[in-house]
């Protein structure tokens, strides 16, 4: 009887430890394998964030979204996170997509002003009206991948 109790407790303890270990070491979201929760144009996405940031954060932040837009420029100035900027219909509003450095080669092949589809994790809108030198705003995506 004692043996059964000991084995049961050991089994439960092992299960708890295994669960805790797996939780602690859970991987980051795999954008490539995950389905986008929203499909949206660059113009619409920026407009939603620019109109009501709080509501947009609740709707989009940390969500995997698929954004379609015109590639304005590529920004490889930070080798730790190559980036691409999608145009919106606002002169000082952009969608900034961050990629893993491993994606650099495929990004180099894209032509400016081509229409592209990007899937990534939406993080929010950067830029602040109170900061006079930083008037332009970017809705940012991380861990992005090019869909087409």
């Amino acid at each position: 009887m004692k043996k059964i109790a000991f084995l049961s407790i050991s089994f439960i303890l092992f299960g708890v430890l295994l669960f805790a270990y797996r939780m602690y070491n859970k991987p980051h979201i795999n954008v490539e394998r995950s389905k986008a929760t929203e499909i949206i144009s660059a113009e619409q996405l920026f407009e939603i964030f620019n109109t009501n940031e709080d509501s947009a954060m609740n709707q989009f932040s940390d969500q995997i979204i698929l954004v379609t837009g015109k590639l304005l420029s590529k920004d490889f100035s930070n080798e730790l996170e190559p980036q691409m900027i999608l145009k919106t219909d606002k002169e000082s509003g952009f969608i900034r997509c961050g990629f893993k450095p491993s994606q650099l080669k495929s990004l180099e092949q894209l032509n400016d002003l081509s229409i592209i589809k990007v899937k990534g994790i939406c993080k929010g809108i950067n830029g602040d009206d109170e900061l006079t030198l930083l008037k332009d705003k970017d809705v940012t995506l991380s861990s992005s991948i090019i869909i087409e």
């Binding site: 929010g124 006079t132 930083l134």
Partner: peptide
């Protein structure tokens, strides 16, 4: 004058 703005969620 020097200014910064960053998103907290962009910290990896």
């Amino acid at each position: 004058q020097l200014q910064f703005s960053c998103l907290i969620k962009d910290f990896e």
